[in-house]
Simulated scan of single mutants.
Amino acid sequence: MPVHMSDSVRGGPRNGVGLGLALGSAVAFGGSGVAAKPLIEAGLDPLHVVWLRVAGAALVMLPLAVRHRALVRRCPGLLAGFGLFAVAGVQACYFAAISRIPVGVALLVEYLAPALVLGWVRFVQRRPVTRAAAFGVVLAVGGLACVVEVWSGLGFDALGLLLALGAACCQVGYFVLADRGGDAGDAAPDPLGVIAYGLLVGAVVLTAVARPWDMDWSLLAGSVPMDGTPVVAGLLLAWIVLVATVLAYVSGVLSVRRLSPQVAGVVACLEAVIATVLAWVLLGEHLSTPQIIGGGVVLAGALVAQSSAPARGSSEPVAGGGPERELSGRSTAA
């Protein structure tokens, strides 16, 4: 979940570099579920896979945490919210969901987060939202109905869908907590520092919950089947930690520093498309035509909801709760 630095559009060659980084980040995030699912199906508990991902990434990012240790005093609430919700909550729910439903479906359900943020703003905070944002919510909900095929009585595992929805709610919970704990007068914290400490907090929480000492570590020493093809488990884990987490977060932050939040948000929506295509090719998970169309509608609705917010501090109606103007709404699970 990279941090938005400003609302101005950068120009020149930086845009090309930024787009490349944003696309790379979307590919990296999109491959997390595809790499994790074979490990889960081989016998690892989803919580153990999440712990391996978060703890491994936290170890890699530890030097950044030391460098930005002043953040612990400046914004402890923000760090706690990021670690508890955007890291531990989102990823635990997402990995548990993909153990029961297709990767693409889980990620598309998670993309309801921008719509849920708007619901919080409108009905809990009682603040107005733009018509475009409300239209985006309607699009997202309608698209989700196609993704889960409501006309067939929810053919997917109901618990899997609830877990995916839980991942979306965790993103909303993080935004709400950050909004309450933030001070508009403070300088924006360094996004890489927030990510580093979020991973550390998430690792501590997940250690208590997942109990990794009970994990069957021997599974990581062998191979696991990926749609019938044996793949070294250690390579899948390395991809999840180094590429789908560390590289994905860092490249996402660097891309937003070169692009406007709106442009970065457009590219971020490709994450769900990439995850669906990778799951189709590598895992043999096929979506029906109505589900593919519905997925496109979900992403369109999420994009409208994210991009229709005015600049922070504007007197216009808002399209989001506040902190999502600094912290991108991209999925932190994928």
Rank of each mutant, 00 (worst) to 15 (best):
A158C: 11
M215F: 05
A302L: 06
K37M: 03
G313P: 01
Q91Y: 05
L270W: 06
T229L: 13
V141Y: 00
Q262T: 09
V54C: 01
D214W: 09
S8I: 06
G252W: 04
A42N: 10
H48I: 07
A167G: 13
R211H: 15
L62G: 07
L64N: 08
A140N: 05
V17P: 11
L161M: 05
G284F: 03
I274M: 11
I293Y: 01
S328P: 02
V224Q: 10
G294S: 13
L254R: 12
V103W: 04
L283Q: 04
T276P: 09
S331E: 05
A319F: 10
S315P: 09
G12V: 01
L84F: 13
S308Y: 02
A279P: 01
E324Q: 13
G193E: 04
S288K: 14
G182T: 06
D214K: 10
I240M: 10
S6H: 07
V90E: 00
L39M: 10
T332A: 15
G182N: 06
L79T: 10
A58H: 11
L327T: 13
L108P: 04
P114C: 03
W151Y: 03
W151L: 07
S315Y: 09
E326F: 12
M215P: 05
G16Q: 03
S288Q: 15
L236S: 01
V109P: 12
I292Q: 15
I40N: 04
T229K: 05
Y174S: 15
K37W: 00
R73N: 13
G252A: 14
D157H: 11
P290F: 03
L235E: 13
A309T: 15
I195M: 10
G142I: 11
S6D: 14
A244I: 09
L71M: 05
V27C: 06
A158Q: 14
S307Q: 11
A57V: 12
M215W: 07
F156K: 11
V105C: 05
L107E: 02
A272E: 02
A65L: 08
L107F: 00
R211D: 14
L108A: 12
G301L: 10
L278A: 15
V204A: 15
Y197H: 15
G198Y: 00
H68P: 09
S223L: 00
V263T: 14
A134W: 12
V267H: 02
D7Q: 15
S223C: 08
T207M: 13
E41S: 13
I240W: 03
D186I: 01
V72K: 08
A22E: 12
G202F: 02
A164C: 03
H286A: 15
W151C: 02
V103A: 08
A196G: 06
G284V: 09
V194M: 04
P230E: 04
G322W: 06
S32L: 08
S8T: 11
V176D: 05
V201M: 00
V60T: 03
E324W: 07
V141S: 01
G166E: 02
G295F: 01
G155R: 15
A233N: 01
F123P: 10
V105K: 06
H68C: 07
L247G: 04
G322N: 10
P212V: 07
F123E: 08
V90S: 00
C146S: 15
V277W: 06
P212M: 05
G143M: 08
Q291M: 03
L237G: 08
A221G: 10
G83F: 08
L144F: 14
G295T: 02
W280M: 10
V266F: 12
R100K: 12
C169L: 15
P189V: 08
